Simulated scan of single mutants.
Amino acid sequence: MTVAASGRRTGTGTLEWWYRWLLGAYPRSYRKGHGDELVATLLATAEPGRAVPSARESLALVLGGLRTRMIGTTEPAVPRSERRRRPDEQPSRVT
């Protein structure tokens, strides 16, 4: 990514910058646990040559972040394999 004389970002990092900025709607702890994965997925599924997210995609990211804040998901991400089970809970079996 480079910064042009006008101060605008140019190059491949522009879209990543926008995604990271939009993910600011999510709680910090959520971004810390999932941010890099979310950005990687968004970049992998973006249309080739796109420099900014679409309005629909931007709205979805902001609403998702606000919804996450509202439901109180502020705990750091813990992989399923590392979660504690309740004493009465049986381990799940994959067949």
Score class of each variant (00 low, 15 high):
Leu38Cys: 09
Arg50Ile: 05
Leu63His: 06
Thr74Gln: 00
Ser58Lys: 04
Leu42Pro: 00
Glu75Pro: 08
Ser29Gln: 12
Asp88Ser: 10
Ser92Leu: 10
Glu16Lys: 01
Val94Gly: 00
Tyr30Ala: 04
Leu59Val: 05
Leu38Met: 15
Glu47His: 07
Ala4Asp: 15
Ser6Arg: 12
Ser58Asp: 00
Thr68Met: 03
Glu57Trp: 00
His34Trp: 07
Val52Phe: 13
Arg69Ile: 01
Gly65Thr: 07
Trp21Glu: 13
Trp17Tyr: 15
Pro76Glu: 10
Gly33Met: 06
Thr74Glu: 03
Val39Trp: 09
Gln90Arg: 14
Ala46Ile: 00
Gly33Phe: 02
Trp18Lys: 08
Ala46Glu: 04
Gly7Tyr: 09
Lys32Glu: 14
Thr68Leu: 07
Ala55Gly: 01
Leu15Tyr: 06
Arg93Asp: 06
Arg67Ile: 03
Arg69Pro: 03
Leu43Glu: 07
Glu82Cys: 05
Tyr26Met: 02
Arg9Val: 15
Val39Phe: 09
Trp21Asn: 09
Ser54Trp: 04
Gly11Lys: 02
Arg56His: 09
Ala55Gln: 05
Val78Met: 12
Ser81Tyr: 08
Glu57Asn: 03
Gly35Tyr: 00
Ala40Glu: 13
Arg9Met: 15
Ala25Lys: 00
Thr41Pro: 00
Pro87Tyr: 12
Ser92Gly: 02
Arg50Thr: 11
Arg8Val: 07
Ser6Val: 06
Ser92Thr: 08
Glu37Asn: 13
Asp88Glu: 14
Leu15Gly: 01
Thr68Cys: 08
Trp18Ile: 01
Pro76Ser: 13
Pro27His: 05
Arg84Asn: 09
Gly13Tyr: 09
Gly13Val: 14
Ser81Phe: 09
Tyr26Thr: 03
Glu82Pro: 00
Thr74Tyr: 02
Leu22Gln: 03
Trp18Ala: 14
